[in-house]
Design a protein around this nucleic acid. Structure first.
Lengths: 142, 142
DNA sequence: ATTAAAAGGAGAATGATTATTTATTAATAT
DNA sequence: ATATTAATAAATAATCATTCTCCTTTTAAT
């Protein structure tokens, strides 16, 4: 996993370079996402931000996450009913979700690049993104 | 792609074996899904069924599709806002979605089984399902 | 400090999906 | 065939994640 502090700086730099403003609420969301390894939902982030800024609105979280998605500083993963977010590795990579406890893991899989290349080759599509999601039961839940 | 007629028979057999009834509306949905290669949405199926049974309700389509999912005779693919369904190959397999026209293709990719095995091995999860989705621009839209 | 633009807050609106209720319909036994 | 019952369909209400609207506050540049 990337260093949270470095990730945060990177996010801040990208924000600044695009002339987006830095507000306390926004900084709080960035910090959470940069440090997170648990792929939090909007609700998860909301709960955490509220501890520091109790008047924060859910819409603010949605808007911030959406902004970060646009500038490719966070990855949205639609596993189930609500999305989960990865601000630590904001580029496409495989995920494994435990169907029982909801835990998400990033497996280190070889051959992903080849798979993407093969998909492009056999279809003729220009591939710009992908989601490789596995569903199962984690060791603790078995 | 599988023979639509054969797929339909298979679906009918499974329904019967589980003591689910065969109604005209249900049959219509089965036929559409067995023959479809375009991965229709619930709305798509609804429009088609309505041409034969104009009073059909959206809820009926949802219920039928949901039933088919339970007995593993249709695969749900959550691409974007609304799900799309594959009744022709109702088992996990890769998909490529065109971000411009929405067309969905089934690429023939080697090494998928190994990838699943590798994910299970390195994580310790018991993997029961997966979604391998690629996003890009199809040849026609380029 | 002033000001224009951006962002936040609160809650309403949206839209896909699910649940509920009632009315039909099909399967089975009589 | 008919009655009984249980499953299914229709219509509509409810839900829930997400987005939007409107208004206020804050930011950052002058």
């Amino acid at each position: 996993m990337a260093d949270p502090q470095a990730r945060l700086e990177q996010m801040l730099a990208k924000l600044k370079s695009r002339n987006f403003r830095l507000t306390p609420q926004r900084l709080a969301v960035l910090q959470i996402l940069a440090a997170s390894t648990n792929h939090p939902s909007v609700e998860d982030i909301y709960e955490e931000v509220k501890q520091v800024f109790p008047t924060t609105s859910l819409a603010t979280i949605y808007k911030t996450v959406s902004l970060l998605k646009e500038i490719h500083e966070v990855l949205e993963i639609r596993f189930t009913d609500s999305s989960r977010f990865d601000g630590n590795k904001p580029y496409p990579h495989p995920h494994i979700l435990c169907l029982r406890c909801g835990r998400v893991l990033d497996p280190e899989l070889p051959g992903v690049d080849q798979l993407v290349a093969a998909a492009a080759a056999c279809s003729g599509y220009q591939i710009v993104d992908h989601r490789l999601n596995f569903y199962g039961i984690c060791p603790d839940c078995q």
